[in-house]
Design a binder for these strands. Structure first.
Lengths: 341, 341
DNA sequence: CTGAAAGCGCTTACAG
DNA sequence: CTGAAAGCGCTTACAG
């Protein structure tokens, strides 16, 4: 393996100068720099990250903590982060943490606690107090995308507003029997993403002088099969059927559309359906949705991390601090006015 | 940050002994080891990976190259790899490479060429000659999961056999007009995954004295929307309609089922559909499929890499070298005998 | 079983 | 602008 000494010798300079020419900020004569660069590329020299980080204390590596890879939203965020990090010359080290337990503890107590990453991005993870504390004490910048826990830098959409917006769209079309397919633990955990969307839905309903019908709020996993099962249950029960359904995610909404079809309920004729996300499959199903931009969110998280690390022009770590990430209503063919009669 | 010198001082031993007690294989008195461990945990010591790797030359980090994160198969593989790597104490550095171009070159020429990873796992990527050469010259073990390119260690299912198995299932049910929804470039690239599945399909057909009908092989992206569009095209054309369809992926197959429904074609009554993958949504749609186990494949790739790195009992790098990864036919309700008449 | 010393490959004050 | 020297925090022969 070629080391910097080899480059220096070939270029006829000292290791210090070679280092400065290749990476350091120190001034080097233009001609010297050229000679060093030529020498480096001639022998295919690439600096050892370990050696460099041992002295600089920087690793040019960011840890990304994610609860699940294989869900559209998370996959998009991850791709956005990867792209942004790579183009900034940073590596991405992936930690897929699930439920609390020894495996998750190990990530926070060992993997993330070492000097292997300069910063951490946590996506949609509810940080326990001791986890947030661990990270804080390590002194590494932490940027959260959604999720909960006491941290400095968090980017998030306004989930309450999302619930309100979706519900108001249905109210505006004239619906009064509006059901909600909520995410898991929406009722039990008020501050969570599903909880906030549920609250937005309830508040919008209340503002219109309405309340959900009996059994018209059902919780399910935010997947297509779970959405299908949940909708089957919700739409199949006796009593007045809802004319509209707000699902907490597009995958659930699509599952609900399929459930409606199986029950012979026409969408949107007999049932309007709206989701949340802007899933890549939404268009195929003509699904009306409150769209968010996960890939872009990932990029913004990287921007924030890079700023906290002092890369580029050091500005406000979170330029629009406090302002929620953008979402927008995209109306397609799955929502319309309720059936007459 | 606590360094090993602090631990040594607190335990009343030398840094060398502290190092041996904590990680090194050298013999240390049981009592000494206990004292060192107590000291380490007391001050929360965690070895600096950079310093350790500088001297050992090992990083305990594996680079994973993947063409796309947000596709079920790849997401599952990635999760399987992450879990296996983490439990072996290794980090996973993610490189999402797309089309050939400067961004991809940078991954192979810079990121992967440095001494930051001990080995590389490439998932479903067709390695160009210069890319494979780059990796080989870096001396790092490379394990491929699927994909193409000249490499030593490759794990893969037998895609030709997959195509044959799926087609034979349909033939066995009595179908003779069997269409194929192929992956992109199946015809143009004979050695690729889509190409092999297509060939398996054609060979099975030929063995039964059959050939695909006019316009009964259509290529599409391996996604649900593309599968839907492709099936719409395939099923909508004039002339005798196929009674069965073999899709190169479950997502495509599900898209095709939705297309059939939109065209008023009953599945399986008028059209049998079979896919490939064992997608998590297959069950919800009653989809018959040739199942593979991507998560498990990821784990096997890690096993192979770890063996090549000399971890654990150094055995054959690829224990079942040559043997393809397992797949199996899972029959559900989307396939049946062709309609009479 | 344990310690003193060297060294992994860089970068960074410190002089000049 | 450039070089000699120190040092980042470990591990590993080499002795004892």
């Amino acid at each position: 393996m070629a080391a910097i000494g080899d480059v220096a010798r070939l270029a006829g300079v000292s290791k210090a100068t070679a280092s400065r020419a290749l990476s350091g900020g120190g001034h080097v004569a233009a001609d010297t720099r050229r000679r060093v660069e030529a020498a480096a590329s001639e022998i295919g020299y690439i600096a050892s990250p370990a050696a460099a980080s041992l002295v600089t204390g920087r690793t040019k590596n960011v840890g990304v903590v994610i609860p699940i890879v294989n869900r559209w939203f998370f996959g998009e965020v991850l791709e956005g982060i990867e792209r942004a990090l790579l183009s900034a010359g940073y590596d991405l080290t992936l930690y897929n943490v699930g439920e609390h337990g020894p495996a998750r503890d190990r990530v926070f107590e060992f993997f993330l606690a070492r000097k292997r990453v300069d910063a951490v991005i946590a996506i949609g993870v509810d940080l326990a107090e001791h986890e947030a504390a661990r990270l804080a004490q390590s002194g590494k910048p932490l940027v959260c995308l959604g999720g909960r826990g006491a941290v400095d830098a968090r980017l998030a959409i306004d989930d309450h507003a999302v619930g309100t917006l979706a519900t108001e769209h249905l109210l505006g079309l004239g619906h009064t029997r509006i059901a909600h397919l909520a995410g898991l633990d929406a009722v039990a955990e008020p501050g969570s993403v599903p909880g906030e969307r549920l609250r937005g839905y309830l508040d919008a309903l209340a503002s219109a002088g309405l309340a959900p019908g009996e059994g018209h709020v059902v919780e399910a996993d935010t997947t297509m099969p779970a959405g299908c099962t949940g909708a089957l249950q919700l739409l199949g029960r006796p009593g007045p059927r809802p004319t509209a359904l707000f699902a907490a995610s597009d995958e659930m909404a699509i599952g609900a559309m399929i459930a409606a079809e199986r029950l012979g309920i026409a969408v949107p004729g007999e049932l309007s359906v709206i989701g949340v996300d802007g899933h890549e499959y939404a268009e195929m199903f003509g699904l009306t949705t409150v769209e968010q931009a996960p890939g872009e969110q990932g990029r913004l998280a990287v921007d924030a991390v890079l700023r906290l690390l002092g890369e580029g022009e050091v500005a406000d770590p979170l330029p629009d601090s406090g302002a929620p990430l953008p979402t927008r209503l995209v109306v397609r063919s799955s929502t319309t006015a309720p059936p007459r009669g």
